[in-house]
């Protein structure tokens, strides 16, 4: 597991980031409860039990963080979640590429999308250096993946122009 390293500033911890997941969990639990209001008791009991404990734990955490903020030993800035800042654009771009990968694979098919994603993502992360290497790795892996997943394992991955061409040729 990745370690959560100690905060760099020993005086004031930024705990806002620690609240992101709990807030999500809280909202989700409320939504879940909303969806089971009108269902048979048997379908409620287990989730109500777990959900109530979760909300109780979340309240404990809120109190803990609240106390630290009040005592001045912590603030509510995002802290490690937003750090290191220099990587935020790269990470968002990688996220966008990943989203694009999933979105386009339905039309372009497995091989072309993997190739495009791998080369673009590698170029993004390397800052545009070693283009040749990025394209060759992407090409080899896309083809290897095609042979392994689609030809050998017969995965019903969306077929695009490349897969159709191959099927037609062979």
């Amino acid at each position: 597991m990745t370690d959560h390293e100690e905060q760099e500033n020993p005086e004031r911890k930024s705990l806002g980031g620690d609240l992101v997941l709990p807030i999500g969990a809280f909202l989700f639990t409320l939504y879940y409860f909303y969806t089971i209001i009108d269902v048979p008791r048997i379908a409620q009991v287990s989730a109500f039990f777990v959900g109530t404990i979760l909300i109780f734990l979340l309240i404990l955490l809120a109190v803990r963080i609240g106390r630290e903020v009040k005592a001045g030993t912590a603030d509510l800035r995002l802290g490690r979640l937003g750090e290191p800042r220099s990587f935020i654009p790269k990470r968002l771009a990688l996220f966008a590429l990943t989203l694009g990968f999933i979105f386009f694979v339905e039309w372009l098919g497995f091989t072309l999308t993997v190739f495009a994603f791998l080369s673009l993502a590698m170029l993004l992360l390397s800052g545009g250096k070693k283009k040749g290497l990025a394209f060759s790795i992407a090409g080899i892996l896309a083809l290897g993946g095609y042979l392994l997943f689609i030809v050998a394992f017969n995965t019903r991955f969306p077929a695009g122009p490349f897969e159709q061409l191959m099927e037609w040729l062979f």
Binding site: A25, V39, P40, A43, A47, V50
Partner: peptide
């Protein structure tokens, strides 16, 4: 417990009522 709640997404095994989907 957040994981458990996520694990509870879906229809219950008795009446198949969808929950949190």
């Amino acid at each position: 417990f957040f994981g458990l709640m996520i694990g509870y997404i879906g229809a219950d095994v008795v009446y198949e009522t969808p929950r949190g989907t």
